[in-house]
Computed example of a mutant assay.
Amino acid sequence: MHGPGSPGWLLVALCAATGAYCLLRMRSRVEEQRRTAGGEALMGFGMAAMAVPAAVSTPPRWTWAVYTAVFGVAALRALWAARTNAHHAHHLVGAFAMAYMAAVMASGAHSGVPVLTGVLLVYFTVYVLWAGTRLVPAAVAGPAGGSSSGGGTAMGGTPGGSSAGGGRTPGWGDRLELAQACRLSMGIGMLAMLLTL
């Protein structure tokens, strides 16, 4: 990870800001949202720590072993959660990618298995493109004052089923589009980190 100065600091800032927002999302009234936000906060802060430029800090090798263990446990937890919620499959891939990158750094090799790195790059490229399209607002149907045709897939609803038009306005921490923007940011960060591997 530990790339050159300016791009490295931009990646640190992006991932840390994403992790901080995910911590705020843990205050949601929706239990599944809180659980998901916790895992995403761990990913954001972990990515920020791993992306600190080498000129500033070169952690000892045992630090990478700790990262490997932490994200290995996170991957196992995501695997268990994926039994009931398919969204956790993405968390599984993300935690595995983090554990993989940390293991490579712990070994001192500074380059991973090309095929595995390539598969992860393809996965996160597809994910970033898919997540980006989900942020595009749904087209407005009918005259002014008409309803959106998307019904909450991109901009309106929350995982708990409340929407802006459903009587209760979701808090900014429950906004689905903000959560999706965080996932998009982390996907872009993961691509940047994998490219340096």
Rank of each mutant, 00 (worst) to 15 (best):
G145W: 09
A106I: 00
Y123E: 08
A86Y: 08
G3R: 08
V30R: 00
T196K: 08
T196R: 14
E40T: 13
D174T: 04
T196W: 07
A54D: 11
L24N: 01
R25Q: 15
A103S: 14
P137N: 04
A41L: 05
A51F: 04
Q180Y: 04
V66R: 02
W172R: 07
M47V: 13
Q33P: 00
A37M: 02
L116T: 15
M43G: 02
A97C: 14
L76S: 09
M190S: 07
A48L: 04
A192C: 15
E177V: 07
S163P: 00
A65Q: 12
L184I: 07
A37P: 09
A144G: 05
E177F: 14
R77F: 12
L194S: 05
R34P: 09
M193P: 10
G112T: 05
V30D: 14
A48F: 04
G38S: 10
V140I: 09
P137E: 04
L11A: 11
H87E: 14
G146V: 01
T158L: 00
R25D: 11
R25M: 15
E32V: 15
L11C: 10
G39C: 02
W64F: 15
A41H: 03
P170Y: 05
M1A: 11
L120S: 06
M193A: 09
V136E: 02
A103R: 07
S107I: 10
V56M: 06
G167V: 09
G165C: 03
E31R: 13
W64T: 05
A69Y: 02
T18R: 00
R134P: 00
G161K: 06
Y123A: 13
V119L: 15
F45G: 04
V52W: 03
Y123P: 01
Q180D: 10
T36C: 00
M47S: 09
G38P: 01
L10R: 13
L135V: 10
T153D: 12
M193D: 06
R35G: 02
G150L: 01
G72T: 10
G142C: 09
S111V: 14
T68W: 03
F96I: 08
P114G: 04
M101Y: 02
A164Q: 08
M47Y: 03
S28Y: 05
G112F: 05
A20R: 01
G189L: 06
S149W: 05
V115P: 00
L120Q: 06
A141E: 13
M105R: 14
G142M: 08
S57L: 15
P170H: 08
A138P: 01
H110M: 13
G150H: 01
Q180V: 12
P4H: 12
A69R: 01
G108E: 09
A131S: 14
A102W: 03
R175I: 07
L79Q: 08
C22E: 14
T36K: 04
M155C: 05
C22Y: 09
V30S: 06
R61C: 08
M186Q: 15
L116S: 07
G161E: 07
A48K: 01
G94S: 14
G118D: 09
F96H: 03
T117W: 01
Q180E: 10
G171S: 12
A103I: 01
T196F: 05
V119A: 15
L197K: 01
G165W: 04
W62S: 11
T117Q: 11
L197Y: 08
Y67L: 10
R175T: 05
P114N: 07
M105P: 00
G38F: 14
A81E: 15
